[in-house]
C-alpha cells in the first residue's frame, strides 16, 4: 500500500501493470473468471471481445473505487463496489448491443454476468480500495490485458483445433487436410486446452523468473567477491 504523502515512483506505476499481465495473470496464475473463460472461448474473436469488455469495466471500477476509497464506509464497501461494477458492466452491455450486435449475440448471458466476475471484485477489494488512482488504473489495465491475452489464446487454440479456422478464416484454404476436431469446441475440450496452456504459461514464466534470479545472484556474487578482494587493501591502508 502506498501512503498518501509518498511520491509515486516509476516502479509504483509500472509494477501493477506488468504484474497484472504475468505474475497476477487472472486466468493462468490466479485461476479467476474460469466460468466465462471456458464458456466463451469457442472462438478467438469472442475471447478478444470478452477480454476488452472486462478490461474497460476493470479500469473504470478500479479508478472510481480508488477515488472513493476514503469516502465509502467499510461496512457497506462490498455493496458499493458491486454498484460501481454493475454500472460499468451495464454500460458495456449497452454499447456492445448497439454497436457490435454479432458479438453481443455470441457472448450472450456472459456479458451482463461480468458484474459477478470474481476478477473484478478481487482487484477492486484487494488493490483499488488500498491504493492511489494511477496504480489502480495501471493494475486494471494490466489485469485486463492479461485476461484478454489468456482467453484470446485459449480461443485461438480451441477455434483452430475445433472449428478449423483462425479468427473466423477457414484454415482449409491454407492447409488442405480436414482439421476440425469438434471435441475442442465442447466444454471438455475447453478444460483440456485451459489446463495445457496453464502448464505451458506457468512453466515458461517460472523458467524466465528463475534465470533472472540466477543472473541477479551471479551479479551480486561477483560484486561481493570484488568487495571481498578490495576489503583487505582498504583495511591494511586504514590500519597503516
Amino acid at each position: 500500500m502506498i501512503e498518501k504523502t509518498e511520491k509515486l515512483t516509476f516502479k509504483d506505476i509500472t509494477s501493477p501493470f506488468t504484474n497484472g499481465i504475468i505474475n497476477n495473470n487472472a486466468t493462468f496464475r490466479l485461476v479467476l473468471g474460469t466460468c466465462p473463460t471456458l464458456a466463451i472461448t469457442t472462438s478467438a474473436s469472442n475471447g478478444i471481445g470478452m477480454g476488452l469488455s472486462v478490461l474497460f469495466v476493470l479500469v473504470c471500477a478500479n479508478a472510481i473505487v480508488s477515488i472513493l476509497r476514503n469516502i465509502i464506509p467499510r461496512k457497506v464497501r462490498i455493496p458499493a463496489y458491486i454498484l460501481i461494477i454493475a454500472t460499468f458492466s451495464t454500460i458495456v452491455e449497452m454499447v456492445v448491443r448497439a454497436f457490435l450486435p454479432d458479438l453481443y449475440d455470441k457472448l450472450g448471458l456472459f456479458l451482463p454476468l461480468i458484474v459477478v466476475n470474481c476478477i473484478l471484485l478481487a482487484r477492486v477489494e484487494s488493490f483499488a480500495s488500498l491504493n492511489r488512482v494511477i496504480p489502480s488504473i495501471m493494475d486494471g489495465i494490466g489485469i485486463g490485458l492479461g485476461f484478454t491475452f489468456s482467453i484470446t489464446l485459449i480461443g485461438i487454440v480451441r477455434e483452430f483445433l475445433g472449428a478449423g479456422s483462425f479468427f473466423g478464416i477457414p484454415i482449409n484454404s491454407i492447409i488442405s487436410a480436414e482439421l476440425p476436431m469438434t471435441f475442442f469446441i465442447l466444454p471438455a475440450g475447453g478444460f483440456m486446452v485451459y489446463g495445457f496452456l496453464m502448464v505451458i504459461f506457468n512453466s515458461v514464466v517460472d523458467k524466465i523468473q528463475k534465470s533472472l534470479e540466477n543472473r541477479n545472484r551471479v551479479n551480486l556474487g561477483s560484486r561481493s567477491v570484488n568487495a571481498h578482494i578490495s576489503t583487505p587493501e582498504i583495511d591494511t591502508q586504514g590500519g597503516k
Partner: peptide, 17 residues
C-alpha cells in the same frame, strides 16, 4: 454515500441508454 453512488450511476446509465 450509497444514495449518491446510485444517483450518479443512474444518470450515467440514462445518458448511455
Amino acid at each position: 454515500v450509497l444514495g449518491l453512488i446510485a444517483m450518479v450511476a443512474s444518470i450515467m446509465l440514462a445518458v448511455v441508454n
